[in-house]
Structures are given as structure tokens and as C-alpha cells.
């Protein structure tokens, strides 16, 4: 990495942009991601949101944010960002508002909005080279509606619409959509995956992205104790496990060129990650589905076998 002001956790800025008291679940991974991401971004931010769990951060008459917030619609937050960005630009250009009134425009959505209903809008915004940030807090299902499968749900996971049954022992049998690659295929200036467990990595990535004009896209693993069926105290631990098992690679792509920012020295077996979550419980009980677990392990191994060390 180039010169960075983030060497250790001590370098994380103290200023909080997100105060306590949201109505999100205790131990919400997405909330932690947003809190840290905002610290990395700094002030003068407007968040543009699509329907999802984090929509409930701000409900009238309360908001936890000290910065601006605009809920748009489930399918079109990037277009909402387009309108705000373009309006600020032209108002500044015409001298109608002072340049100090400028804001960083940041889309924040869940994986349902990012991978499914809002994908067209995202593709459009990236294609138009919109100068914005996109933070997808990926909890791998439609959490806010009670945890139904999204196209970001991993294979083998149980959700309320992909329950494991004797006919469907895997639960969800579809693969997780590779949003990183979909975004990267547009060749935007910056795309990265992040994890709330790897905070310095996250801060360095946001820091780096601030140098680029155009789309800066972040895909954040966001453990959801409620939907994943895990201990609320273990959100960060789960995120770390996802990284250490290689299930959640930490990487970035600058104008399409991929670099892995962290390569687990010795990948832990995926089983360590799967077995502590109720959404994968059917792979272990009543009888262990060795085949399914091996298949998930194989996919991870194949991924890393192609990663240039």
C-alpha cells in the first residue's frame, strides 16, 4: 500500500458521526460497518439509502446520524445519489451555493437492493462515472423483512424462503452473486471488499478511494446475528472467521486491476465458520452433510488457487 495514516487501530479517528440509540438489533454488523466507514470518510457526507435494515436507523423524529440522510426507494438509491451530486455540482458552478456546502454522496444499501432490485440503477450510475461512494452492507439476505433469500445469499444457507427440507437439503441451492465482479466489470476507479473485523484494512481502502473521482464501491460483510442465528456478541468474530476461512476475501480493484489486501496465511476450514450459525445448522444436524460442506470448501479453495500471491 502507498503512504497511509492508518497503521494501527490507534489511528482510527475518535470523532463519532453516528450516535447511539438506533433501533437496529444489538450486535448489528451493518451498524458497525457504517459507524467505522463514516469515521474513515470524515464529515460532510450525505447518505442515500435504499430500503433495508439500515433504513430503520432513522425513523421520524429520530436519526442517529450527525450527517444528512436521504431515503429514496429500494430500487434507485444510486439514481438518488446522481440527483444530489448533479444538483450540488451545478449549484456550485452557477454560484448559487458556496463550495464549502459540498458533500460526499454515499449510497448505503443492503445486499438485496445492491444485487437484485437496484442493480440496474447501480450499473447506470457506475457507467455514468458518477462521483459517489457505494457502501453495500451485505448480510446475505433480506434481513429487514425477516431474512428471505437474496441473490447474495450463499449456497447452503437457510433463509425463510430457502428452508432446508428433505427435498432441498442444502437450503439455498443457488450461488452467491459476485457483486464485486459485477461492479468491477464496469472498470470504475475503485472497488473493494471490507470486513468490520479488519478495521485498518477498511480505513486504508476508504483513504485510498478518496483520491479518485468517480464511483468508489465497497462491499462489506455485515454479520447479522438475528438472521444468521449466531450469538449477538460474536458479530465481529464471525466476520473475522469469514476472512480467515477465505470465504470473504479482502481485496480491491483500481480501474479493474485486482489486488488482495490480505491473504490468510493458513486458511481455516470453512466448517469453523459454518457450524456456529443456525442458517447452516442443517449441514451439521441431524446428520452431517459432508458432501455439501466439502463442496463449499472446494469453491473457496478454487477461488484462492487462482489468486496470485
Amino acid at each position: 500500500m502507498s503512504i497511509t495514516k492508518y497503521k494501527t487501530l490507534k489511528d482510527v479517528p475518535r470523532e463519532e458521526f453516528l450516535v447511539s440509540g438506533t433501533s437496529l438489533c444489538a450486535g448489528c454488523g451493518a451498524l458497525l460497518v457504517i459507524r467505522l466507514f463514516h469515521k474513515a470518510l470524515g464529515d460532510n457526507v450525505v447518505w442515500v439509502n435504499a430500503a433495508g435494515c439500515v433504513t430503520l436507523m432513522a425513523t421520524f423524529p429520530y436519526t442517529p446520524l450527525k450527517s444528512s440522510w436521504f431515503y429514496t426507494a429500494m430500487g434507485s438509491a444510486p439514481a438518488g445519489a446522481q440527483g444530489i451530486r448533479d444538483a450540488l455540482d451545478i449549484l456550485i458552478k452557477k454560484g448559487k451555493i458556496d463550495p464549502t456546502e459540498n458533500l460526499k454522496v454515499v449510497v448505503v444499501t443492503g445486499d438485496g437492493a445492491a444485487s437484485d432490485i437496484g442493480l440496474q440503477s447501480t450499473s447506470g450510475a457506475i457507467h455514468r462515472n458518477l462521483d459517489f461512494f457505494y457502501l453495500c452492507v451485505d448480510n446475505e439476505a433480506y434481513g429487514n423483512t425477516g431474512f428471505q433469500a437474496s441473490s447474495s445469499s450463499p449456497i447452503g444457507s437457510g433463509t425463510t424462503t430457502t428452508r432446508p427440507t428433505h427435498l432441498y437439503p442444502m437450503g439455498n441451492f443457488l450461488p452467491k452473486k459476485d457483486l464485486f465482479e459485477i461492479w468491477r466489470s464496469h472498470r470504475p476507479p475503485y472497488v473493494a471488499t471490507i470486513s468490520p473485523s479488519h478495521v485498518v484494512d477498511m480505513f486504508r481502502k476508504v483513504e485510498k478511494s478518496l483520491n479518485f473521482k468517480g464511483p468508489k464501491l465497497f462491499l462489506a460483510l455485515s454479520p447479522c446475528p438475528t438472521g444468521w442465528g449466531a450469538e449477538v456478541s460474536e458479530s465481529v468474530k464471525l466476520a473475522r472467521l469469514a476472512v480467515e476461512t477465505g470465504i470473504w476475501p479482502l481485496k480491491e480493484a483500481v480501474y479493474g486491476e485486482v489486488t488482495h489486501t490480505y491473504i490468510p496465511p493458513k486458511r481455516r476450514p470453512v466448517e469453523d465458520y459454518l457450524k456456529v450459525q443456525r442458517r447452516f445448522a442443517h449441514l451439521f444436524k441431524p446428520v452431517k452433510n459432508e458432501g455439501a460442506i466439502a463442496e463449499i470448501q472446494k469453491q473457496v479453495d478454487e477461488y484462492w488457487s487462482k489468486v496470485v500471491h
Binding site: 432513522a58 429520530y62 436519526t63 450527525k66
Partner: peptide, 10 residues
């Protein structure tokens, strides 16, 4: 909503 960062009231 113009009162920012007020969820702590809850």
C-alpha cells in the same frame, strides 16, 4: 428531520 444525532434520547 433537522435535529441530527438525536437517537440518544431513546
Amino acid at each position: 428531520l433537522l435535529s441530527m444525532g438525536n437517537t440518544a434520547l431513546r
